[in-house]
Nucleic acid binder design. Sequence first.
DNA 1: TTGAAAGCGCTAACAT
DNA 2: ATGTTAGCGCTTTCAA
Lengths: 344, 344
Amino acid sequence: MTLKDLAEMLGLSPTTVSRALNGFPEVAETTRRRVEAAALAHGYRPNSQARRLATGRAMAIGHVIPLSRQNEMLNPIFGDFIAGASAVYATAGYDMVLITVADADQSRAYRALRAQGNVDGVIVQGPRAQDSRIALLSDLGLPFVVHGRASGVDLPYAHVDVNSARAFERATRFLIDLGHRRIALVNGLEEMDFALRRRRGFERALGERGLAPDPHLMLSGEMTEAQGHAAAHRLLARHDPPTAFLTSSLLSAMGVRRALWDLGLKMGRDVSILTHDDELGYFRNGAEEPIFTATRASVRAAGRRCAEILLAQIAEPGAPPVTELMEAVLVVGASTGPAPGARP
Amino acid sequence: MTLKDLAEMLGLSPTTVSRALNGFPEVAETTRRRVEAAALAHGYRPNSQARRLATGRAMAIGHVIPLSRQNEMLNPIFGDFIAGASAVYATAGYDMVLITVADADQSRAYRALRAQGNVDGVIVQGPRAQDSRIALLSDLGLPFVVHGRASGVDLPYAHVDVNSARAFERATRFLIDLGHRRIALVNGLEEMDFALRRRRGFERALGERGLAPDPHLMLSGEMTEAQGHAAAHRLLARHDPPTAFLTSSLLSAMGVRRALWDLGLKMGRDVSILTHDDELGYFRNGAEEPIFTATRASVRAAGRRCAEILLAQIAEPGAPPVTELMEAVLVVGASTGPAPGARP
DNA sequence: TTGAAAGCGCTAACAT
DNA sequence: ATGTTAGCGCTTTCAA
């Protein structure tokens, strides 16, 4: 059932049928109703390929996942981010295209996307401190929105980020106020922009209270359970072990927690663990109560906003890039207690 | 840079250029080389929309995620499955389209997919015991492959599944052999086909040893950490608590583990936990050592096989549906010990 | 071995 | 308010 077929059945021209179905104002109401009824009755659906070709719009958004960072797909936030974005696409009639790309091919892949025209824009995930993708995409004129930021990039570009620095600054200050002096930072890979920002916030809070950051207490690595576990073991084996852990993700927090169990240490009495809510904190940290809802909602919101901003940008290419900074919700759990030996 | 442009530059017809680039045999080798060189030099990329319209193939595969089961997106297996499938699509030049659909709209959504023609086939995720999608898709003639099976469906259809029943049968037998008599089953929602099969395997092993399954020890629910935790607490509070847990997912296993900690019970001495490797078992169960690699590989393999089978089916629509049953790898960890009081 | 012409199904400028 | 016409960029008969 094509537009032409439908038009013939109705004794109308394809143009009129197209206009009726696409809500053009000049169509007579009676005609529109007739057309709509017929379309419904015959289950007519415009062929999307044809429409795409005719309009020059792909009606699709690309989400590019670098293969090296497939961990991100495993990463719990990924699903929620996608869920948030896809809800927006669905209502706007866009498709969501997932594209996995080898690291070496990044540049080629984006150029191909541009030239082939099978997406109208892309979402950039997991930006690094100096992310070449941003310059490349600006250059190509392919609309994009970054989830996160790239500290080393000067160009203006649309992005949605969470205030990682402030979140970690507040978290660190919180631990200091509980009397902790030796606080470990189990951070993500520092080539990732968010990890850098988190460390900066951590150091800022320490500096503000006249504490020098101890490099031995600052580790970074892939944010996995295993890494958190290994890091905590290493740190707790020191002659001057930390009394508190600030971790960058739920997964590493779980690993840290497991290390404490290994050693028979009690959370909140011997050692405190604090992670923040916005990146991966699917559990009320330390407290044993999961808080899926709150965090999933915030990640989903980020996905939604990224998608909305991108669609707006596609609709109005001239507009200045929208940037949004969400404040992280710090969720402090029951096990985050005073430092051992600290006066209350 | 369009095909026409390129043809003009070369003094050839668009037809010849198209043939040269698409590997048609009748093109002179010298011409082909000239064309290829020029295409490369000018960064020519065929417009995919145009090609799709002309060929009638969408060059895209749809992965439909029912909104109600967005947990599946959070679910660690999802990312790996997608990663496996997308690798196949990438080499075959297909796009992967992620489609989220409200439950009520399932039927409408598939019909629309079919009519709009923006995918050449779909992967069906998370089949239920009687899954109406299978009949619908067969009816629509839209190629599809199911990840999993639907016990209640008689039609032949392509699928890739893991032998859940046998996996749980073997796991149960293993626990029985360790002397366990009261074994709890913390299962997924029984409307999901895989959960049904697991229960059947569990019951079969019990029956085989003359043990009657105790309905009080069989729980089912969403496979979350919270559910596992709640379930374990409820079971351990009984006057006749289980000495072993067989769980259906990593997440619920983590919840069970946490419940043991709450109660000061020791894994492998007081209580054993066993989960299987193939669905969510990202940890060597009970053992404290994560085994991401093995399981991620198996889920990825499932994604890859589903994609391969689907593409083959699209290429040769007449062929009988391919079905594949993978045997689950049971990974038994250190904490899965003999039942308390059992003679060795 | 190459080219001319038609058409995939739709939209959009230009009539009327 | 409706129709005519000409594409969108490619593939694909059919001729040469």
